[in-house]
């Protein structure tokens, strides 16, 4: 019990004193996850729109695959990516293994199916009348498509938040392709795992608290946004 209290007290001390090692880990985590979520959102929303409203070859297969891959085990993604990026792999020449870029790619692969599948579900729920209404008010085809995406924006934002939650909490894939190198590829989740192994709970608890706080802030912002509109 004494150790638990000591660890919690030390964790808060690290947070309050803005420990430089901790801040470096948090900023790298945020940088990797935000970059990944930007790429995954852009690709996922465009893909979801195409799957919802355009003629896409093997549409049913792609939708089923995206739905299935929502539960993709991160270690499997990490393993496959490791094999592709390792020196003897087909993409080894790019020398991306054990870099933050490899971590971004891994997180994109994890977030993409979630954002695509959830955005697709939101978009197909928009009645054709909304697109017709936009065109009937003078919108071009592209503007009418934006009106449809805007109509589904709460579901789409939720999908992005779910994707962000997934990548920020994920440990297996970034550990394999990032290598957990101190000051270079060490992020919050991999540090927590490492510090737990070492029996040093202070930094692990501090990072756990920050991780929860970030999730709380993001979800509260989404909730406030939705309430503002539906008040």
């Amino acid at each position: 019990m004494e150790r638990l209290f000591y660890s919690i007290k030390e964790a808060f001390r690290l947070i309050i004193t803005l420990d430089s090692e901790m801040l470096g880990i948090v900023s790298l985590s945020l940088g990797v996850s935000i970059a990944a979520i930007c790429f995954a959102s852009l690709a996922g929303i465009v893909l979801a729109y195409a799957l919802a409203f355009r003629k896409v070859p093997l549409k049913a297969f792609v939708v089923s695959t995206m739905n299935t891959f929502m539960g993709l085990p991160p270690v499997v993604v990490g393993l496959v990516l490791y094999l592709l990026l390792s020196r003897s792999g087909p993409m080894g020449f790019m020398k991306l293994l054990y870099t933050p870029y490899a971590m971004v790619i891994a997180q994109v692969l994890l977030a993409l199916p979630i954002i695509t599948a959830m955005s697709h579900a939101s978009l197909v729920a928009v009645r054709p009348a909304i697109k017709y209404a936009a065109k009937g008010l003078g919108a071009s085809d592209a503007q009418a498509s934006i009106a449809v995406v805007r109509y589904a924006r709460y579901g789409i934002i939720s999908s992005v938040m779910a994707g962000l939650g997934r990548v920020m909490a994920e440990v297996g894939a970034v550990l394999i392709v990032g290598g957990n190198i101190a000051g270079y590829t060490r992020v919050m989740t991999t540090t927590i795992a490492l510090e737990y192994d070492k029996g040093n709970f202070e930094l692990a608890i501090a990072l756990g608290i920050i991780l929860l706080l970030i999730a709380l802030i993001l979800n509260s912002a989404l909730y406030m946004y939705q309430r503002k509109v539906y008040r």
Binding site: R127, A129, I130, Y132, A133, A134, K135, G136, L137, G138, A139, S140, A147, R150, Y151, R153, Y154, V229
Partner: peptide
């Protein structure tokens, strides 16, 4: 079509209002 749509106004049946 782009030019002509600017001259047109449409009211469709059912709920067609935007989520705004």
């Amino acid at each position: 079509v782009k030019k002509l749509r600017q001259l047109i106004g449409v009211v469709l049946s059912g709920d067609t209002l935007f989520n705004d």
